[in-house]
């Protein structure tokens, strides 16, 4: 297994992720590393997310998605959301991505054209629309930067849009539990219905079919098919 390069890559990626999360935690706990950990985490998140959508080997991008989610959970920790960070690692980093990676492996076909990327022009156009259009609009509006045609300040962050308050730390796990069974009871029950539905739906679609319930009939049917051939 060690001969395979992908194994080493994956191992390095995981070790790197663990180190980054631990390091950022330590820095944060020391009290002066919040900026450091934010910039480190966000740089790595952006790099790995870009890699997920551009790397040609899909298995790599699957594992990079795990890395992205683990790093995002680090961001959640910086935002005082400890329970959410744990849930993110367990659900998104663990369950969802593992399912996706299984999907990649099970649908692997050497002759498949799916891994050949689109032509450059299409990707550049998409990049211009999304990266320059949507992204710039969002960022400029979110940060409230004004391109003032007459006034002196060209780039200035206006504080007016968001009603920013000082963050406070609360014990999220306990409070989330209470909120689930009080204020967010209806969505909670609805989510359980949703999961039930996903269970039924996924099983029905992924089940292997036999045309007849009876095994003997199935065999007979196969024999008939052979005779016909």
């Amino acid at each position: 297994m060690l001969k395979d390069k992908s194994f080493l890559t994956i191992l390095t990626v995981f070790l790197g992720a663990v180190l980054v999360v631990l390091g950022s935690l330590i820095f944060s706990s020391l009290g002066y590393g919040k900026e450091f950990s934010f910039y480190l985490l966000s740089t790595l998140i952006v790099i790995s997310a870009v890699a997920v959508v551009t790397v040609s080997n899909l298995v790599y991008s699957g594992f990079l998605l795990v890395l992205t989610f683990v790093l995002v959970s680090g961001i959640y920790m910086l935002l005082n959301a400890d329970f959410l960070a744990a849930a993110q690692i367990l659900i998104n980093g663990g369950a969802v991505t593992i399912m996706l990676i299984f999907a990649i492996w099970l649908t692997n076909n050497k002759n498949d054209t799916a891994n050949i990327p689109y032509s450059g022009y299409y990707r550049y156009t998409a990049f211009v629309f999304v990266g320059l259009g949507l992204f710039l609009v969002l960022v400029l509006r979110i940060t409230g930067i004004n391109f003032n045609p007459t006034g002196t300040p060209v780039l200035s962050v206006s504080p007016g849009i968001w009603n920013i308050l000082e963050p406070i730390k609360v014990n999220t796990t306990e409070k989330i539990g209470q909120l689930f069974f009080n204020e967010y009871l209806v969505p909670f029950e609805l989510a359980s219905i949703l999961l039930l539905m996903a269970l039924i739906g996924a099983i029905v679609l992924a089940l292997r079919e036999y045309k007849f319930e009876n095994k003997e009939e199935n065999l007979k049917n196969k024999e008939e098919e052979k005779v016909l051939k």
Binding site: P187, L190, I193, L194, M197, A198, I200, G201, A202, L205
Partner: peptide, 20 residues
């Protein structure tokens, strides 16, 4: 949240039903 979950409930069910 209820709004979003309602939309997703009917949408995800429809994905399954379409591929039935």
């Amino acid at each position: 949240i209820t709004f979003y979950l309602g939309i997703e409930l009917i949408s995800i069910t429809s994905y399954v039903l379409c591929a039935f």
